[in-house]
């Protein structure tokens, strides 16, 4: 299979802006799926609302485009009903952590085997550039014209403390690393979180003097360091990338099957 075999090519060119990182995430995701040798019919993709959510329309999997913030709740129903399917849940930062924040915490707490890919562009892109929970203090959006006084979540710390058993971060500059991380996340049994720093030149970049897509990728290159590198020690102000958490914890659908066996006296 080539990456293009997983695409619904008739909908291309896609609807994302020039230089939008989300297409790069799609690109890496498909390479991960290809590497894992998954059949298109084994994969369900459930998305919510926003630029990121449109990814589900472009892949030739079982795809469900739902409502804002609730993708993980729909995905939980699907996974509980059909545990044999690989369920991928791409979300934006607003989708996952503002309107969908509660579902995110509880999916992590249950450690249900879903792969949450959070395309963090630090802005509400589709609605025109309002600030999000990851925009950051002092940054600008159409609803933060004087600079945001809201502080950001640290998605890695949040996911870890909520109980996700796989937590990683990468960027759309580090595309080989990114595809490798997504591959690991899908293969992991349990709730996996991949934060992908994904540039929005149109709505974040423009308002925050972050430059073009190329310049935003240069920033990802310069301002991030591998988790276990020397640079991570010497430059604590830089953002760390890599796999932060990868541990075994009882997975929810398996624990449930175990409970059914005990309820029916089969165990």
């Amino acid at each position: 299979m080539s990456v293009r075999d997983y695409l619904r090519e008739r909908f291309f060119p896609h609807m994302w802006c020039p230089g939008c990182g989300h297409g790069t995430v799609l690109n890496a995701l498909l390479r991960a799926v290809e590497k894992l040798g998954l059949d298109k019919s084994e994969i369900v993709m459930v998305s919510g609302i926003g630029c990121s959510a449109r990814i589900s329309g472009y892949v030739d999997f079982h795809t469900m485009h739902t409502i804002h913030g609730r993708a993980l709740a729909f995905a939980t129903g699907i996974k509980m009903s059909r545990p044999e399917l690989s369920v991928l849940v791409p979300m934006g930062d607003g989708d996952a952590l503002a309107i969908g924040g509660n579902h995110f915490l509880h999916a992590a707490r249950r450690n249900i085997d879903l792969t949450a890919i959070i395309m963090n562009n630090r802005i509400y892109g589709m609605t025109g550039g309002q600030f999000s929970p990851l925009t950051g203090y002092g940054c600008f959006g159409t609803t933060a014209p004087y600079g945001s006084v809201d502080h950001s979540f640290d998605l890695v710390e949040l996911s870890t403390s909520a109980g996700a058993s796989f937590v990683a971060r990468s960027t759309t500059y580090h595309v080989i690393e990114l595809a490798g991380i997504i591959e690991k996340a899908i293969a992991h049994r349990g709730f996996s979180v991949v934060e992908v720093m994904s540039q929005c030149p149109t709505n974040f970049g423009r308002r925050n003097q972050a430059g073009s897509a190329v310049e935003m990728l240069e920033t990802y290159r310069k301002q991030t360091v591998p988790l276990d590198s020397e640079a991570a020690q010497t430059s604590p102000e830089k953002i760390r990338r890599g796999v932060f958490v990868e541990k075994k914890r009882p997975e929810y659908t398996e624990a449930y099957e175990e409970m059914i066996r005990s309820a029916t006296g089969e165990s």
Partner: peptide
């Protein structure tokens, strides 16, 4: 293949 992998439009192979 970095161009292919980074392309947000999936336009190069």
């Amino acid at each position: 293949r970095l161009c292919q992998f980074r392309c947000p439009d999936l336009a190069i192979e």
